[in-house]
Amino acid sequence: MTAEIVAILLMYIKAFAVGGAICMTAQIIINFTSLTSGKILVYFMLAGVALTALGLYQPLVEFAGAGATVPICGFGYLLANGAIKGAEKGLFYAVSGPLTAASAGVTAAVVFSLIMALLFHSRPKRN
């Protein structure tokens, strides 16, 4: 029992550290290049795709769990993983695989955003 709790706590620490480190890397890049948030998101997602394709991201996901899947690189991981899994079944599934894997996230973003847009107004900011 104690061992299990320790393992869970360790997992949280690993998720925190890895996720935090990915965000900190992005922040360092922003600090030195003043890239906008949209560009940062695209670059990190592409980095996730590339690392997954090279087989380097899977170990990180196994190591840090949500620490590796929650940052936008995890989205890239999902896309690339879908493609790699689909490739085993043939070209059609290799091409449709990425979006199929990412469909939950994209659907959620679209549906929830539309709901929020119906519910909320933009409000003025003061700082």
Partner: peptide, 28 residues
């Protein structure tokens, strides 16, 4: 107006981005 200028020249107000230290604030 801050909000209308921000909307036209930069990003939606709710977008969680940081303002660089050399930026200015559009007067309403």
């Amino acid at each position: 107006h801050f909000a209308s200028a921000e909307r036209q020249y930069r990003y939606p107000l709710e977008l969680g981005c940081t303002r660089p230290p050399q930026s200015q604030w559009t007067v309403t």
